[in-house]
Design a protein around this nucleic acid. Structure first.
Lengths: 186, 186
DNA sequence: ATACAAATGTAGCGATCGCTACAAAATGAT
DNA sequence: ATCATTTTGTAGCGATCGCTACATTTGTAT
């Protein structure tokens, strides 16, 4: 009675890796089944609809990303905005985490057009990231902290987009500049 | 001999509007033909392949965006980074230009996966924007100007992404914060 | 009016899409 | 061993995909 669940989990893990490696462009039922090394017939036996497969896999991606971020920067250590931006930017551009950012960009883009089933997941991605940033800021004033968090989030997501078309050196310079400016007294 | 060209242009304009309104999710040949109020057969008569239709339409989008940006902010008036960020952010979030940003996010996301025919166009979008920003900065030092341009570009593109999941008030606050910090003396 | 080229409609090809019906096989309970 | 349930393969449905062959209409040059 549980073989089904075990294999579903296995397939899900493989599909998650497939999504991180290939993005949302190769997500037909048969392609997902191929990535999971399973027949399409069985994928629809483990899940009910293709959208359920995708949703579950994206949720797993979101969870893994959250875990990686949590592990990389302990939540009890509060940082000033400049430093958090610096470390966050470095983190999200690392080989380990960059694929998650890239995939979440695709999900957010589709969600922006109301394409199912991306909407809910996209919200979770952005919200989760916002919470992660805000929880690590040492700024006491709530409004100021939210503003700083939104700014850091914007910069980090902007990097994920722009990195596809702007030279890395320019991006490094841009980050340094932002860090410097954030450090400076108001 | 030129009827074909005229009608192709007409179809192209309608498809461009369709792309701006509906994004890349409804771009089957028949859907594009429907948007152009033309049979799919004729669309392939005006162009050769579907990809040619999409490419031409996206080039038109890029050109229109460039024109709008040029018109909105004359190139001969150089601004300090803080001010350019402020005006650029406001511009790209306006009702008129926001759809272009949204579409370009989709294009860049697909290009990041190597999907044809988005790669070339995505590069043109990012490069064009970078040039636009840099040309309007009054900063004299080249490296500093490029860093500022990359930062502004990152922030503006980040806004286009994040605006789908973060409250507008937080984004406004983030922009104000960035503007303030950029204004401050180093 | 005739002849030729351009423009367009009709119809359909083979491929892929998400999904399902049906039956065989494997497994477990008694 | 029997029987019921779970698991799996095979086969295919109807829809849509990009694209093309073929025939017909329309326009133009002489």
């Amino acid at each position: 009675m549980e073989k089904r669940i075990i294999q579903r989990e296995q397939a899900l893990e493989r599909i998650t890796e497939h999504l991180l490696a290939s993005g949302l462009s190769k997500t037909s039922l048969r392609q997902l089944a191929g990535a999971a090394d399973v027949s399409d017939r069985m994928l629809l036996y483990y899940f009910k609809k293709k959208d359920d497969v995708l949703t579950a896999a994206m949720q797993r991606v979101a969870f893994q990303l959250a875990s990686l971020l949590e592990a990389a920067l302990p939540a009890d250590e509060k940082l000033p905005a400049a430093e958090l931006l610096e470390r966050g930017a470095k983190l999200t551009r690392s080989d380990e985490i960059a694929p998650y950012m890239k995939l979440s960009m695709e999900i957010v883009a589709k969600a922006g057009r109301g394409e199912a089933p991306y909407g809910d997941i996209a919200g979770a991605f952005v919200d989760g990231f916002m919470v992660w940033v805000e929880a690590r800021l040492d700024t006491e004033d709530l409004n100021q902290r939210r503003a700083e968090a939104a700014l850091i989030l914007t910069l980090i997501d902007g990097l994920a987009v722009v990195s596809l078309g702007v030279e890395a050196a320019d991006l490094d310079a841009a980050i340094s500049l932002a860090v410097t400016k954030l450090k400076a007294a108001p």
